[in-house]
Design a protein around this nucleic acid. Structure first.
Length: 872
RNA sequence: GCGAGGAUGGCGGAAUUGGUAGACGCGCUGGACUUAGGAUCCAGUGGGGCGACUCGUGGGGGUUCAAGUCCCCCUCCUCGCACCA
């Protein structure tokens, strides 16, 4: 038999799978598995970092196929978005051409790795056949009152030249551009995701197969808090200040109020004497970005408005201040300040000399300032003596009776701002008519097609939608009155595209509806979703929202899209940080820009290098370079590219390397040594099986498990143990341990063949081995399979574990004396406790340790160990 | 500060219900064989000790016949949130 040559066999079987339609999804089986990886932005050539989750998905899909499931393993492209525009501007090609060229390239990489998708269901979001249904769903939401247009303070990304949703602002910066976000007052389209806040929160509990971490992040983002909303009268004016508080019970301690600088009442209530100062403060806070507001060490600032409000509980006048520690976007944008029970208010009161009244009795010896824990109410009139929960109930009752306010649940979640002032996205199907106002585009006129802009310059962002410069797009007759009207020229947030694509896969070619409910119901929910943690909130929250909406419309039974979620760790590659000079243990980087890009401290010493996981390497030109593992990326140039790698090494080697190197949820570092190990492993498999190919072919696979010799019996047992472990490990996505188990079995097979002939058991072992290897290294498995069987290894059913073979006849008894291992003995499984105790005592080393000592106690764990506890 | 998850050989990492710590791989050491191959095979590989032994899963306590695993306290790391009233 020839040497293992991946380049010969891999293209052959890839072609074979394509032609035979392996993994072409078919509805109908009684068991279904919908395996989905997050579809990517088509970025052209792929590196191993991109391929990790696709490989994982492929393993699962192939495994389920072997088990006889109806498997849906589709792929598509999240093809709208800024990179295409940027590339278009840079290279002067149209976004569409650039995108489709990238898709072609990416597809090749996927095929090279042997990753099998049902390409007949491919989804490309920038195709009108797809985004038509974005518009359709948008209109459906509009009908249901879930779309609203409102003017408010929004996040403006100055680099992207577009607004962003709240979820897309991370630490005050645009999630993609990293630019500091500005606030602008604009009128925009929103989806009322807040209507679903409670369900989005509650239903997280229905998702046991989601990482706790992701659920925790979503809970925090939704940010439910229970409390009350109530009014304070402003003295000498009809105005009321409404506040939200989770601690209405502390109202007797509200000694002042604070409004956010943006609060609409500020101008109205400020007294003439304070006007100049207040206006200056409002102006100053407007100039500050979110980040700046937080960076100032959180030293509280604020200005007295000159106005007073009446505390409805105490009847006292309390001053009204404005301060930027109160956020305009949360609650009512105003608070009652209770310094006695709130640290922030305490700090503010201290700084500005405002009154502090405790209304909850702190424990004796309390040395802190504000006391926010439970305790009996004090200085609180009719609440006195009540614990916090009781007091809350009572005060809310009182507020409701006196018309001051009522109990209220507040969420941090904001409505989803979906307008974007960019070109490469789904046109919003709305028409602005001077006579009729806002008129939705009639469904039968969908899709509103994104016009192809011939001149690349036309798509350059200018602060408003590029489409607004194209009358041929926006000039339209009003569908209602027929008068001249104007299309909305914004496009939709591209996260809309990804909020329902997983249902489109169920029925990707449908031109009558987004999908046929029956087909969606067969496949949905996704059984295993695999993707990056970066979407913990963004995509995953929006997708849950859309699924719930479509569920409510009777279009799909599932009301959660993803039954199981797995967030894979990143793939790191060694990166050359560049040459360094070393002086007295200190390292000086010659390429400082690169050092800072790779986030290395400029003060790093030679001593710290190893601790930080980095290395100093001598290069051939005599220079010393600093190397460190970093997430594979195009910009760092440390990505191991799929094409070149597969040409030099092979797809199965890449797959095994990715899967074995680390648990899939951990980050893994791609190394030459790891690749070498995978090569060795696959080669060993190949040699072992190919050497015996003839003998195996002429041996029957039939045997009676009762009449095996000891060596065969041991082999058969190990085989079944492995079968069980590999199966359960794949289901648990524990691919590294599954591969380890296969390596162990390989060692067993090799050992067996050293002094035993090819036998029926051995043939069976080889058969199972190839089947178990197939999901991980499908090409080599398919090749070897065909040495013995005519059809695809993926058409053969996954073998059943022979439970009887797992039962042992004897086991290794561990003998401890006072908890320490002093000996071992092989004993029959049926041995009685008495027999075991005798056998244990016959072990010389055990005898020695028992000698002259008194046995106090003996603990026998059947099938495992005997612990003889002695004294003296 | 709050929340989630971690800390096991030189490295990546294994270890049902508490029951032989270090599976598997990488690396390393020694050897064999060479049809010099991407070699391969054999032996070894947590620390200390010639050894019997002994110490050992971030640190300190505890429960238990028995603790990486359970309980209490602490340190450090990673990630997320963070003036959210």
């Amino acid at each position: 038999m020839d040497k293992y040559n991946p380049h010969e066999i891999e293209p052959k079987w890839q072609k074979y799978w394509q032609e035979t339609g392996l993994l072409k999804a078919q509805e109908g089986s009684d068991k279904k598995a919908y395996i989905l990886v997050m579809f990517p932005y088509p970025s052209g050539d792929l590196h191993m970092g991109h391929l990790k989750n696709y490989t994982m998905g492929d393993v699962l899909a192939r495994f389920r196929t072997q088990q006889g499931y109806s498997v849906l393993h589709p792929f598509g492209w999240d093809a709208f978005g800024l990179p295409a525009e940027n590339a278009a501007l840079k290279f002067g090609v149209s976004p569409a051409n650039w995108t489709y060229a990238n898709i072609q390239q990416s597809k090749e990489s996927l095929n090279l790795m042997g990753i099998q998708y049902d390409w007949s269901r491919e989804v490309t979001t920038c195709a009108p056949e797809y985004y038509k249904w974005n518009q359709w769903i948008f209109l459906k939401m509009y009908q249901q009152g879930l779309v609203l247009r409102k003017k408010s303070l929004v996040n403006w990304d100055p680099v992207e030249q577009s607004v962003l949703a709240n979820e897309q602002v991370i630490e005050g910066r645009g999630w993609r551009s990293g630019a500091l976000v500005e606030k602008r007052e604009l009128e925009q389209w929103y989806l009322k995701i807040t209507d679903y806040a409670e369900r989005l929160l509650q239903d997280l509990d229905k998702l046991p197969r989601w990482p706790e971490k992701v659920k925790a992040m979503q809970r925090a983002w939704i940010g439910k808090s229970q409390g009350a909303e109530f009014d304070f009268q402003v003295k000498g004016s009809g105005a009321k200040i409404r506040v939200f508080s989770t601690r209405p019970d502390t109202i007797f301690g509200a000694t002042f109020m604070v409004l956010a600088p943006e609060h609409p009442l500020v101008a109205q209530i400020t007294t003439p004497e304070q006007k100049v100062k207040v206006e200056a403060y409002v102006q100053a806070s407007k100039m500050k970005s979110e980040v700046e507001r937080q960076m100032e060490d959180r030293e509280k600032t604020g200005i007295f408005t000159g106005a007073y409000a009446v505390n409805p509980a105490t009847g006292k006048d309390i001053p009204v201040w404005i301060a930027d520690y109160v956020l305009s976007g949360y609650g009512t944008g105003a608070i009652m300040a209770v310094p006695g029970q709130d640290e922030r208010d305490w700090e503010f009161a201290e700084k500005f000399g405002l009154e502090i009244v405790r209304t909850v009795q702190p424990p004796s010896g309390w040395k802190g300032k504000a006391y926010a824990e439970d305790g009996p109410a004090i200085n609180s009139g009719f609440l006195n003596g009540l614990m916090v929960d009781e007091a809350k109930k009572k005060i809310i009752e009182w507020m409701e009776q006196n018309g001051i306010g009522q109990g209220k649940v507040n969420y941090r979640l904001r409505d989803w701002l979906i307008s974007r002032q960019r070109y490469w996205g789904t046109p919003i199907p709305m028409i602005h008519c001077d006579h009729c106002g806002i008129v939705p585009v009639p469904v039968e006129q969908l899709p509103v097609v994104l016009p192809e802009l011939k001149d690349v310059e036309d798509i350059r962002p200018k602060g408003k939608s590029p489409l607004a410069a194209h009358p041929e797009f926006y000039e339209v007759g009003c569908p209602r009155c027929g008068h001249k009207a104007r299309r909305d020229t914004d496009t939709m947030d591209t996260f809309i595209d990804s909020s329902w694509y997983f249902m489109r896969y169920a029925d990707a070619k449908n031109d009558k509806a987004p999908f046929d409910p029956e087909k969606a119901d067969f496949w949905m929910p996704v059984d295993q979703y695999i993707g990056g943690i970066e979407h913990a909130i963004l995509h995953l929250l929006y997708a849950r929202f859309f699924t719930k909406f479509l569920h409510d419309q009777g279009m799909v039974k599932a009301d959660e899209p993803f039954e199981g979620l797995f967030t894979q760790g990143m793939v790191m590659g060694w990166s050359d940080v560049g040459p360094v000079e070393i002086q007295g243990g200190k390292i000086r980087f010659l390429d400082d820009a690169r050092r800072s890009k790779l986030e290395i401290s400029p003060d790093i010493t030679v001593e710290d290098v190893k601790k930080s996981g980095a290395e100093l390497r001598q290069h051939d030109d005599g220079s010393t370079h600093f190397w460190k593992p970093a997430v594979m990326s195009k910009s760092l140039g440390n990505g191991v590219m799929v094409g070149p790698f597969v040409r030099e090494q092979g797809a199965d080697i890449a797959r095994v390397t990715i899967l074995f190197a680390a648990p899939p949820e951990n980050e893994m570092i791609w190394t030459d040594e790891g690749v070498q190990g995978s090569w060795r492993y696959l080669n060993r498999v190949w040699r072992l099986i190919s050497t015996d190919a003839q003998a195996i072919n002429t041996t029957s696979g039939k045997f009676n498990s009762a009449s095996l010799n000891p060596a065969e019996k041991a082999l058969y047992q190990k085989l079944n143990q492995t079968l069980q472990k590999v199966g359960s490990d794949i289901e648990a996505l524990s691919f590294n341990t599954a591969v380890a188990a296969l390596m162990e079995l390989l060692n067993t097979l090799q050992d067996y063949r050293k002094d035993s002939p090819v036998s029926p058991v051995y043939r069976t072992a080889v058969r199972y081995y190839i089947q178990m290897l197939a999901p991980f290294a499908p090409h080599i498995a398919e090749e070897m399979w065909h040495w013995f069987y005519p059809d695809s290894v993926f058409a053969a059913r996954w073998p059943e574990v022979d439970q009887e073979a797992l039962l042992k006849e004897e086991f290794e008894l561990v003998i401890q004396v006072s908890g320490k291992v002093r000996g071992k003995a092989t004993v029959p499984v049926g041995a009685s406790e008495e027999e075991i105790k005798q056998i244990a005592r016959s072990v010389p080393n055990v005898q020695q340790h028992l000698d002259g000592k008194q046995v106090v106690k003996e603990v026998y764990v059947p099938g495992k160990l005997l612990n003889i506890v002695v004294k003296g």
